[in-house]
Amino acid sequence: MAVVNGSGVNQSGVSRAGANLSGANLSGANRSGVSGSGVSRSGIAPRPVTTWVILGVVGLVFLIPIVSMIEFTLRGADGGYDFRHWAALVDPANAGKYAPIWRGLQGSLVLSITTVAIVLFLLAPTMILVTLRFPALRRPLEFLCLLPLSIPAIVLVVGLSPIYLTIGRSVGTGVWTLAFAYGVTVLPYAYRAIQANLDAIDVRTLTEAARSLGAGWGSVLLKVLAPNLRVGLLSASLISVAVVLGEFTIASLLNRQNLQTALFIVNKQDPYVAVILALLALLFAFLLLLAIGRVGTAAALRRTTPKKDPT
């Protein structure tokens, strides 16, 4: 049966997309730590054949699900291939059918913005404060921030649900309230990205230099530290967006609608459009992570390119 079969493929497609998202996030977090350092061929690199075999196997692992998803979305009615499912997505006739997706997307975007705000205005200043004033707290903070990695989302929800009862009564049940939970789930990724950047600059000396030149704390943060933490803050933000866009478990169990839960619902009616959107989400996350790598290195390159002495 075509529908059952399709649904099966689609299920694996969606979950694969989720796995890819978090995989990409991790590699993004690692990359931000070493951004700027060029890859150089050293004497200990494996032989070319080995290199290509490794690349080929890894490439296949990533490509097969993605290609399968693309293939699935292009299937026509009579066993051929066409773009009817892609076209159906923008067909006004289907607006009612796909409405949950747009609502979900809207919710996820609001959540992304709120979560990024938590990262930029709560986590980053806290980390700077710990670096400058309470260096002894660095390890405890790191432990705390990395903890969510080791707690499965489903376990997190068990602890969160009574809290969300209170939140629901006090500030409402709007989808944006999920940002409180997402602020916790993105901590490991955001922390790593910002900490790598903090380690790369001499926060204390820069701060003291700025203070000695007459800068107040606001100027220190905005004019001295923020520009030098730009890459870390940007990476943390984009990774957070990627995590939020790929989040399903917490939203589903707390009965809030975001992109992933909407996809799940629509998937039951029209598996094709769900896979199409999963592909688009994947592409978006990929572009985000690509942007992290690019934006920072351009400025760094401009600043470090040796100049000829004007002699």
């Binding site: 001499d202 000396t205 230099a209 520009p227 600043r303």
Partner: peptide
């Protein structure tokens, strides 16, 4: 003692 110029 440490280089303290603002890198940006």
């Amino acid at each position: 003692q440490a280089y303290s110029l603002f890198p940006h």
